[in-house]
């Protein structure tokens, strides 16, 4: 047996899930697609007392665009999100980043919400959520609250979700009209953990950058927003000079982790190069 022992529940209703979470607290772990969770169990990196399987819950696999928000439910699989017209319409950045999320067989099973809750520091979607101003809808037996992405991702493999809460939906505001997006990643193999990924969005009016978002993955404990690089762009004429300066600011803003694949200098270089490329792509897609 690879995973450690645990009890297993597979409730039919969300109320039952919330009751179980209230009862078991830190000992409980929710499983949806399980595409990060089961490998972590196999590595015995986690020892949950009870696994709460939410795959039988009705009505949580929605992907919709309403009131200017893309809404993705806890059981929407990556594949369905990736292929949905709502995503390409509401969040070009997410659509650009999605092909980098793992492999086809994993995307068939894994979920966007599970991916966000896992918050792997090399993961693309937490960075996209941060860049997009996404909100997480967390539910517990005590009620529902909404947490902004910037408050949700709290550190290495951790989030603001309490032990008695489940992420039932992520809401991503529709990208403003005219915004361009770019996303680039370097990883050892396609679909593998990113050494570095950079996403950028850009708005341009009257020949000047009016709004920029630059986010990095793979550089620390979680998704990183390069505020100084964004500030460097505000008011600047979009072009290679401005993008080089912003890329330098982005590289300066990180304190990257190191491993035997990529040391800190290499990761800084990647942030610099990928930021420049992502901004150039974003600028070419502004209208």
């Amino acid at each position: 047996m690879k995973p450690p022992p645990f009890d297993y529940c597979c409730p039919d209703t969300l109320d039952e899930v919330l009751t179980l979470l209230a009862e078991h607290g830190e000992a409980a772990k929710v499983i949806a697609g399980g595409q990060s969770l089961v490998p972590m169990l196999n590595l015995r990196a986690l020892h949950p007392g009870v696994l709460i399987d939410i795959n039988r819950l009705p009505g949580l696999d929605h992907i919709s665009l309403e009131d200017g928000q893309l809404r993705v439910g806890a059981l929407a699989r990556h594949k369905a999100v990736l292929e949905s017209a709502a995503v390409s319409e509401a969040s070009p950045l997410m659509a650009l980043a999605y092909p980098y999320v793992s492999h086809g067989p994993i995307r068939n099973r894994g979920t966007l919400c599970g991916n966000l809750c896992h918050n792997d520091p090399a993961s693309e979607m937490p960075a996209v959520a941060l860049a997009s101003g996404a909100e997480m809808v967390l539910q517990s037996a005590g009620g529902t609250r909404t947490v902004a992405a910037e408050d949700f991702f709290t550190g290495m493999l951790s989030t603001a979700a309490e032990a008695n809460e489940i992420l039932v939906e992520v809401r991503v505001p529709r990208a403003p009209a005219g915004q361009g997006a770019g996303f680039h990643e370097v990883s050892p193999r396609k679909g593998d953990f990113a050494y570095v990924a950079v996403g950028a969005t850009l708005q341009v009016a009257d020949g000047a950058c009016t709004g920029a978002r630059i986010v990095c993955a793979g550089v620390g404990d979680g998704p990183h927003r390069a505020y100084a690089a964004e500030d460097a762009l505000t008011g600047a004429a979009p072009g290679d000079d401005a993008f080089r300066q912003a890329a330098a600011a982005a590289a300066d803003s990180i304190d990257p982790s190191e491993d035997f694949h990529a040391d800190a200098d290499y990761r800084r270089d990647l942030v610099r190069s990928l930021t420049r490329r992502a901004l150039a792509d974003a600028a070419s897609r502004c209208n």
Binding site: G34, P39, N55, P105, I106, N108
Partner: peptide, 29 residues
């Protein structure tokens, strides 16, 4: 690999490929 990277354990689940090292048998009712 036991960690869903290598694909040697690929099967079809409800007609679509899945990595059987990243699925619990108990989930397959």
């Amino acid at each position: 690999c036991d960690t869903s990277q290598c694909g040697a354990c690929t099967v079809h689940l409800d007609g679509r490929p899945a990595k059987s090292c990243a699925l619990l048998a108990v989930q397959l009712e």
